[in-house]
Design a protein around this nucleic acid. Structure first.
Lengths: 252, 252
DNA sequence: TGACGTCATTGAGAGGCCTCAAAGTCGTAT
DNA sequence: ATACGACTTTGAGGCCTCTCAATGACGTCA
């Protein structure tokens, strides 16, 4: 399993050679201009499971793109519990919500081994001055995030446990598909507990819904491995269309 | 009640003469540059209660600032019910969530007689090219909105009915105060039904909580008139600090 | 001013989800 | 390989909020 000649070290892949460039920030730039973005990006060592990318209260300096792996963001409730605010898959951008403060309003933690591209915000703003398209893309990302958060608010205030979990699974599936992975079977990077926390449900409820979904032939779940067996019914439960109420994913 | 000599017609107040300028978009501009913003703003006739500013699906053309009155934004759930996504008070900006689509993702409706400043988005973008501060302010507004939506998600997934309503009242109070109104007593522009819809509660629950709050001396409510009688306890219920989990309000 | 419709309040009952508890499974590290 | 801890599953019971229903208050318009 040593590296083969034609396989670059992942931590050195340039934007122009990155398979995610069409989903990530570079999509706002022409081939020629991508290298400019590339130059300001810092690529650190991989984060191990449980390591933090930044902590709530840390000074806001950068936004981040996920290259591989998965992260969650969370904040502390008044009672000191953890409240998960989002899950982030490869090509998704996090850190934008800190932009109008001097500190990050949430903590970001790796749920598995994760590689990250760091984009120092000051330099990103400078680059935005040069490339209006990049600026508009950043705005679109934030606008999209607002709409997705509103979908999430609707989920939390109107949907029952079954519908919440169906929505969550369909959303994950569609994000996997867009990244070229199977939307039929995939591996959850979060625990049942984290899923429940995010969806406003107790762990036990999540577990019971999973069991029920399996009895009804909607899914098959072995540990974190999920297979969607009846996507039509699952989508119906989720509320019709293939929703995507969570992080920032792709372009329009 | 005819207009007095020194009172301009409200629909003609320029940004530089507007009492809200320090809370609204102009705060990003110097006195000298405000007039440039002023020139692109359209000031239409007042909206009567129940009238729509825009409908979900309308082509996205402008963002709006509330001059007086109050609006709500809402979207339709899959079952065709209304889901309120925000309430907007004077100086607050709405319409930003449509920015990355060609249509508004929500409808906006006046809850009372309301005056609006319309800012055509194309011209706002052009102006943004000239004034980086304006651009950054727009970004900050969106970033702030994301954080507030996340507060709202926390409310919906972790708080009980008492805490939700306490949070809502404290949030409204702090927004009134910032606008120079009393934060102790004010008039709700929304019905109990709308409040419940927004907070993920049934009307009856809202009503019962109001009754209980009055028995406990936290507030006094006569119809839509609210008086906060024990702001300390109410803040404690809301979860400590004076939160503001809703629309876009002011600067840092 | 009276009548109507909308909104708010109050009560009774039911249901969904949470909490508590315990057993079972998985992953990991020694 | 084994033992430990973390995670998952399942059960029983209770509570909070919703639903349904009816009465009461308010505001509006003829």
């Amino acid at each position: 399993m040593t590296s083969k000649p034609n396989v670059r070290q992942p931590s050195h892949v340039a934007c122009r050679d990155c398979s995610l460039s069409s989903l990530c920030l570079p999509l706002a730039l022409s081939i020629k201009d991508i290298d400019q973005l590339d130059h300001i990006i810092k690529r650190g060592r991989p984060l191990k499971k449980g390591e933090h990318l930044f902590l709530e209260g840390d000074p806001f300096t950068s936004v981040f793109a996920v290259r591989s792996g998965a992260l969650k963001t969370y904040t502390a409730t008044n009672e000191g519990e953890e409240q998960i605010t989002g899950f982030y898959l490869p090509s998704e951008i996090l850190g934008l919500s800190g932009m109008d403060t001097d500190t990050y309003p949430v903590s970001a933690q790796a749920m598995e081994t994760t590689m990250i591209c760091e984009i120092p915000f000051e330099q990103l703003e400078t680059l935005s001055d040069q490339f209006p398209e990049l600026r508009r893309h950043l705005m679109r990302l934030m606008s999209k995030r607002i709409r997705e958060d509103q979908q999430m608010m609707m989920l939390l205030s109107k949907k029952n446990a079954d519908e919440r979990i169906a929505t969550f699974l369909i959303n994950l599936a569609s994000r996997f598909r867009r990244r070229g992975f199977s939307s039929q079977s995939f591996r959850l990077s979060m625990s049942r507990n984290e899923m429940g926390n995010y969806l406003g449900l107790a762990v036990e409820t999540v577990s019971r819904v999973f069991t029920r979904f399996q009895k009804n032939g909607l899914i098959s779940a072995v540990g974190k491995e999920i297979e969607i067996r009846n996507s039509v019914k699952l989508c119906a439960l989720a509320g019709g269309k293939t929703l995507e109420p969570n992080p920032i994913a792709t372009n329009a």
